[in-house]
């Protein structure tokens, strides 16, 4: 259904110099799902994510977000599209000159329709959601630990209650307990808000726990797209290595014995 399609990618080609990254990739993301992008290093996952965000332009093909093409819409439309999506960058990308509070308040203040008291309540609510204690609100990002930076960055990505959330390696650099609570956090958020999530990850546990569909990038193409249970049945060297290696077997143990 076209109306349920949040992101439409069609016939996407990308190359850096003479290196071909993507060759004819077509992909749809539907409302309310969590789509995980998987692929070996250098397979262009992050590039694809950046193209969805409009940070890079593909050589050929189109990327549509909420039904509008990324590359030919006017300033106001682009701004409202950007306000409807949030991004969690791999390193957090918090503004190092601003406190935690101001980092999260920044996108709200940019709207110019919320008063300062409402912003304060909203920021504290977001911090509470990502389980960051109130006393950290006045700290600078340089004083935070890696896990804390991820959480604050997620709070900032959620600042405007986006319908669409991009996560670039959300659990990379977190310890298992933190990764676990991060996954729970995402699940809790999905229950409260209608969220569509596009996620790039290497973490098999996260992948198995929250993704509804998985897109596998290898050999410059989209080699598989579907539910985890279907993906692992596909005979492709990358999929075999990635999901059915020793670590994959540990993470997906239950699923593998069923199939």
């Amino acid at each position: 259904m076209a109306s349920d399609c949040i992101i439409e990618i069609e016939g996407l080609h990308t190359h850096f110099g003479s290196t071909v990254i993507h060759e004819n990739i077509s992909l749809n993301v539907y409302k309310g799902e969590i789509l995980s992008l998987v692929g070996g290093s250098g397979s262009g996952k992050t590039t694809l994510l950046r193209q969805m965000l409009g940070l890079e332009t593909p050589a050929q093909g189109s990327v549509k977000i909420f039904g509008y093409s990324r590359y030919d819409c006017d300033f106001d439309l682009l701004k409202s599209l950007r306000n409807r999506s949030g991004v969690l960058f791999q390193q957090g990308a918090l503004f190092s000159a601003l406190t935690v509070f101001d980092n999260i308040a920044l996108p709200m203040r940019e709207l110019h329709c919320l008063d300062e008291e409402m912003i304060r309540d909203l920021v504290m609510l977001k911090l509470d959601m990502v389980e960051v204690a109130a006393q950290h609100a006045n700290k600078m990002p340089a004083e935070l630990s890696g896990g804390m930076i991820k959480r604050v960055a997620l709070a900032r990505a959620l600042a405007l209650d986006p319908e669409l959330l991009f996560l670039d390696e959300p659990t990379a650099g977190l310890d298992p307990a933190l990764s676990e609570s991060f996954v729970e956090l995402i699940q809790a958020l999905r229950q409260e808000l209608t969220l569509t999530i596009v996620m790039v990850t290497h973490d098999l546990d996260t992948l198995a726990a929250i993704s509804t569909r998985i897109a596998v990038l290898a050999d410059q193409r989209l080699v598989a797209l579907g539910k985890l249970a279907d993906i692992i049945k596909i005979d492709h060297p990358f999929i075999k290595d990635f999901f059915l290696g020793k670590r994959g077997q540990n993470a997906l143990g239950k699923l593998l014995t069923h199939s």
Partner: peptide, 11 residues
């Protein structure tokens, strides 16, 4: 969540 959210610390 709102009930148990902490007030913002004073700058």
């Amino acid at each position: 969540h709102l009930e148990k959210a902490h007030p913002a610390p004073k700058p």
